[in-house]
Nucleic acid binder design. Sequence first.
DNA 1: CGCGGGGTTGAACATTCTCAAGAACTGTGG
DNA 2: CCACAGTTCTTGAGAATGTTCAACCCCGCG
Lengths: 236, 236
Amino acid sequence: MKEMTACPHHPGGAGSHQGCVSLVPIFNHLEPDQMSEIMQVVQGVSFKKGEVMYHAGDASDSLYIVNEGQIKIYRLSESGKEQLVRILNPGDFTGELALFKQSVHEAYAEAMVNSSICMIKQADLQKLLLKYPTISLKILSEFSNRLETSERQTTRFATEKVETRIALFLAELIDSEGNGGKTVNLPMSKKDLASYLGTTPETLSRRLADFEAEGFIKQKGQRKITILDVDGLLLV
Amino acid sequence: MKEMTACPHHPGGAGSHQGCVSLVPIFNHLEPDQMSEIMQVVQGVSFKKGEVMYHAGDASDSLYIVNEGQIKIYRLSESGKEQLVRILNPGDFTGELALFKQSVHEAYAEAMVNSSICMIKQADLQKLLLKYPTISLKILSEFSNRLETSERQTTRFATEKVETRIALFLAELIDSEGNGGKTVNLPMSKKDLASYLGTTPETLSRRLADFEAEGFIKQKGQRKITILDVDGLLLV
DNA sequence: CGCGGGGTTGAACATTCTCAAGAACTGTGG
DNA sequence: CCACAGTTCTTGAGAATGTTCAACCCCGCG
């Protein structure tokens, strides 16, 4: 199932696959010689579409950095319902959570398409952290961001109705796409988006239809949405 | 309003108020001489009941460690509704979030009773982190826990109904109180608990009444609840 | 060009919120 | 120790919001 070699996606050999890691925010400030030290403890792995990188309940002992592909992270609630937590694109990483406390994963990581991953074992990473304290600061910064995002998300679930959560999601999509244009591409299927936003595909579909009827947006195909009136959207 | 001296709650002078810090998980592994180095950059502050330690929008430049009292952290959603995020007790800290990226607070911190706090400025803390990498590891570990909690909470809001969230909260209260007894004290008013659980006081009251009618719990006074049947509670 | 999964729509139902009124608790001052 | 005041909490009824289940559509892909 799972292919595991020195670096399958960079057959050139050690030192040639910095691409896996050098674009990761927590490492990209390092000197070349420090970087090559990191490369020595990195392992390449591939996952085919649909394979799971880790299960809830698995012991967690590695940091996973996405090199190519897409990985979706989702959780199962106590009652068995699934919620999509985030989607990892190249350069993103996961596994940090339980890295600093021996513990098990609470989430699932599954390849949405064929993907190649770089892994660093917990023990190796800890050594690096002690040797290069600036890496810790970077990770702390990354954690801060994620924690902030997560708590904001929690508050939204706790206080906003679905309609508002959808509107906020669309508004943030515009920001993240950066361009002046107002046509955005949904980063995932509407089914997954519903899961991410804590609702059902049916409700999402209805609310988007409402937005369209009110002239706030225009849908084209399954994933393209043109935002016609952000303000109208946001004071729903 | 806000009293700010070398250390108002430990008039003995510098070095005598280790109590503020030594019980904090991120520091309590240090040697005495390292500890005293930290003490030199710690400042004591007091807040009266109802005073706010920081507002959403304030620049964030300090770590706050609770010495005495209780601080409640809450957020305002985009639509202006309030959600209680957590309550800090002595030994807990806050301000970490934006500590590693110059930014502003997104939450509010308000003293629930008269409280005394120890502050460490961001710049001082960063120096300590570089000098003693093990502190970073401790903070990373603390962040991991909080992130895990936050994401679990998000998933619960996204997938569980209010009734289940209440049941889970009660079940976890038993665990955290540790004792074999099944009578727990709510750590906050039901009003605040409703906010924490993302519901209204009315609904919370009704669901608890339901639980009582079904024989799962028994309420005594405003904050004491005896759990009669955890299993029944959890498969609601 | 037909298949299959995502997507949409409809109708009934479940859950939760809101508003409003009344009850119970807490702690404060006499 | 008691009474009072101010909350906090509870309860009721109706309205809003969202879910479920079922049927259908349609887009993308073989």
